[in-house]
Amino acid sequence: MAEIIFLNDVKRDLNTVLTVGTFDGVHAGHKVLINKVLDVAEEKKARSVIVTFDPHPRDIINPGDAGIKLLSSLDERSEMLTDLGVDEMVVIPFDRDFSLLTSEEFVRDIIWEKIGVSAFVIGYDHQFGRNREGTIETVQELGRELGFHTHVVSKQEVGDKTVSSTAIRKAIYEKGDMELAASLLDRFYILNGTVVHGDKRGKKIGYPTANIQPQNSQKVIPKDGVYAVWVRFEGEFYQGMMNIGQRPTFNGGGTVLEVHILDFEKEIYGKDIQLQFVKRIREEQHFDGIENLKNQLRKDEKEVRDVLENRSPNIAKHLK
């Protein structure tokens, strides 16, 4: 994966092309900036770097918004950046002291002195630093002084890719609209988790499920319902029928994430898997009796197979 390097461990290299941002989800809009970094880095035969933050800046600046979930963990961001061809992801620990840096201090003391830069890629509307005082002009002026170039990605270059992480989050957890989310992300939404023991009710009705504990508690969980998903386990992909919700037929007991992996018989308790959400099939609902539930599950399985037949999973370039 694009190597995750925390700021204190980064090696300064002036032959570096970079951009800065949270890049939550690494969505279609982000990719315009990232591809510009890669193009310039290739021209200059330079290191390509994405500078990001952890935790999310809003958790420090606006702690009242801390309940908002993330589209991607650091590891997931690293994986996606690897797929795009980025060399390094430099992570800046974001705390109150860091939030008080002026835009000039950030560029001079962090970007120039600690990371090194020969070309800084910035979006046409990007603002940064204390009170978001930093602008394109700030970077350009410091570039002239310190000796690096500034590349501005114009509004025209972004075009119809002006999507937001907020819009994607809402599509996922308010609507369960995974097709809309995928169109904005340029890929299926992913959730990495560990298989944990459940009550094994699914096995008794012919649909054994793997209960999933998300690896990152801050990840966005899709709206309750039944989903067609791709399941990645040990580099292989399997079709899956995913249920998120309260299991009303079995008197609930809290939100459960469980997936029935089609045509799969391996023992995976305690193992890590990845879920790629393709489409929401239906609402979660209560059934009068197990037979009615089983009949619906058979219908769900057919629809899941039909949906996934022509939908290939996200294939990470670095996976073998």
Rank of each mutant, 00 (worst) to 15 (best):
S48G: 03
S48H: 05
S48E: 02
S48A: 05
V49L: 00
V49Q: 00
V49G: 02
I50T: 01
I50N: 00
I50A: 01
I50R: 00
I50W: 00
I50L: 01
V51M: 07
V51L: 10
V51S: 00
T52H: 02
T52K: 05
F53G: 02
F53H: 03
F53W: 06
F53V: 03
F53A: 04
F53Y: 13
D54W: 07
D54M: 02
D54Q: 11
D54I: 04
P55W: 02
P55V: 04
P55F: 01
H56S: 05
H56G: 03
H56N: 05
H56D: 02
H56M: 04
P57K: 04
P57G: 02
P57L: 01
R58I: 09
R58V: 09
R58P: 05
R58C: 07
D59N: 13
D59M: 14
D59K: 15
D59Y: 10
D59G: 08
I60G: 05
I60L: 05
I60W: 04
I60A: 03
I61Y: 02
I61F: 04
I61T: 08
I61D: 03
N62I: 14
N62Y: 14
N62L: 14
N62H: 14
N62E: 15
P63M: 09
P63N: 07
P63K: 07
P63G: 07
P63F: 05
G64A: 11
G64Q: 12
G64W: 06
D65T: 12
D65G: 10
D65C: 09
D65Q: 13
D65R: 13
D65L: 15
A66R: 13
A66V: 14
A66F: 09
A66E: 10
A66K: 13
A66S: 15
A66Q: 09
G67Q: 14
G67N: 15
G67I: 13
I68D: 11
I68M: 14
K69L: 11
K69C: 12
K69P: 08
K69N: 14
K69V: 09
K69R: 15
L70S: 11
L70R: 14
L70A: 09
L70K: 13
L70D: 10
L71A: 08
L71G: 06
L71H: 07
L71I: 04
L71C: 04
S72Y: 07
S72L: 07
S72N: 12
S72G: 11
S72W: 08
S73E: 02
S73C: 01
S73F: 00
S73L: 00
S73T: 04
L74Y: 07
L74M: 11
L74H: 07
D75W: 07
D75Y: 12
D75Q: 11
D75N: 10
D75E: 12
D75A: 10
D75C: 07
E76M: 11
E76N: 06
R77C: 03
R77S: 03
S78A: 13
S78L: 00
S78C: 03
S78M: 03
S78Q: 01
E79N: 13
E79A: 15
M80C: 02
M80Y: 07
M80H: 06
M80L: 06
L81H: 10
L81K: 08
L81D: 08
T82A: 15
T82W: 14
T82N: 14
T82R: 13
T82V: 11
T82P: 07
T82K: 13
D83F: 12
D83N: 15
D83S: 13
D83T: 11
D83R: 12
